[in-house]
Simulated assay, not measured.
Amino acid sequence: MNKIVTGENIVKSYGKGDEKRNVLDGVSAEIYQGEFVSVMGPSGSGKSTLMFALSGMDGVDGGRVAFDGSDLSALGENELADIRRTKMGFVFQQPTLLKNLNILDNIILTSIRDRRKNAAKITEKARALMKKVGIAELEKRDVTQASGGQLQRAGICRALMSNPKIIFGDEPTGALNSKYAQDIMNIFSEINEDGTAVMLVTHDANVAVRAQRIMFMCDGKIVSEMRLSKFSGTDIDDRMEKVIAKMREIGI
């Protein structure tokens, strides 16, 4: 498989002088085409910072990050923005949707700005994605008329509008109840089966077990990794047992 993202000896620091600390302390990580990766660790372990570094959303103080053959540290902000907009998708714990637009318009907003001449095709694609994730009937609803799980599905649709090579998710189920969280994870699995790489940051073992590979972080370092088989839906208990055992082994 081809590598989509490569991080080599990444260092990211915050603070100055005696208060300076490395949130990422020489981290190296790779994500391959079509791979489903979870990053687990306690609060403050650096997992979200790693995601921001690998996606080019935040610069690094040392090391190198390459995406799809491009050295992100050598690119200007406009070039980075173009890559994030056209080759990456992002899903966060709280979907950032505009309250003055309906759900369909929120999904197509960025794409319409980029490609005004293809408005009809963009709208058609958004509707197809909404149907796929089960919110087709909500296109005219205001953001305030949808549940948290429905809004997260809308956020996923928006992330998929550019046919990204990878979806980055930062605690995408963190604000949802268990039923909605399971529904969202089923969608991520389907996205991955369609060939899109997925990287999810989470503290929840129920989310992490859906991945094919889990990176465990602590104190700014990847302290362990484990590989799992492709998720089948029937081996959840066995996968959970293995993940919990690994967490106990490394003390997180």
Rank of each mutant, 00 (worst) to 15 (best):
G69Q: 04
M130L: 06
S55L: 13
D238Q: 10
I236G: 01
M57T: 04
T196P: 02
G169K: 00
S232Q: 04
G251F: 02
F90D: 00
I122H: 13
S55N: 12
Q145M: 10
G44P: 01
S13T: 12
G148C: 04
N192H: 13
R210T: 04
F216K: 04
E79P: 04
A119K: 14
A81E: 12
V65C: 03
I10P: 02
D105W: 04
V143Q: 12
R64S: 07
K20S: 14
P172K: 08
F92T: 06
M199T: 02
T6W: 05
I244N: 09
S162P: 01
R239K: 11
V91R: 11
L176P: 08
N177D: 14
A146F: 07
G155N: 01
E8A: 09
S232A: 03
K246Q: 06
A81G: 15
K99R: 10
I214V: 09
E139L: 12
I112R: 15
V133L: 15
E19C: 09
D71L: 06
S178H: 08
A74N: 11
M240L: 15
M130D: 06
G34N: 10
M247F: 07
Q152S: 08
F92A: 06
S147E: 09
R158E: 00
G15C: 02
G62A: 03
N177C: 10
G41N: 08
L50I: 02
F36M: 00
S224D: 04
K132E: 09
A120K: 14
I214E: 07
E79W: 12
T144S: 10
N206T: 12
I112F: 02
E241F: 07
K16Y: 14
L176D: 02
T110C: 01
Y14M: 15
S48E: 06
V201C: 01
D235G: 13
K242A: 13
S28A: 10
K16I: 15
M1F: 11
G89Q: 11
M130P: 00
C218Q: 12
I108S: 10
N163E: 05
L54K: 03
D61L: 08
D114I: 06
T123P: 00
M161A: 04
G169S: 09
G155A: 03
Y180E: 15
G26H: 05
K125H: 14
Q94N: 10
R210F: 05
A126I: 14
N206Q: 13
E225F: 04
F52P: 02
F231A: 06
T110V: 09
M226Y: 05
R84F: 14
T196D: 04
S13V: 11
S28G: 08
Q182R: 12
Y14F: 15
G59D: 15
K20D: 14
V11H: 04
V27S: 03
R115S: 08
N78T: 09
F168K: 01
S232C: 06
T86M: 13
I250G: 00
G56F: 11
R115M: 11
A136H: 03
T49V: 08
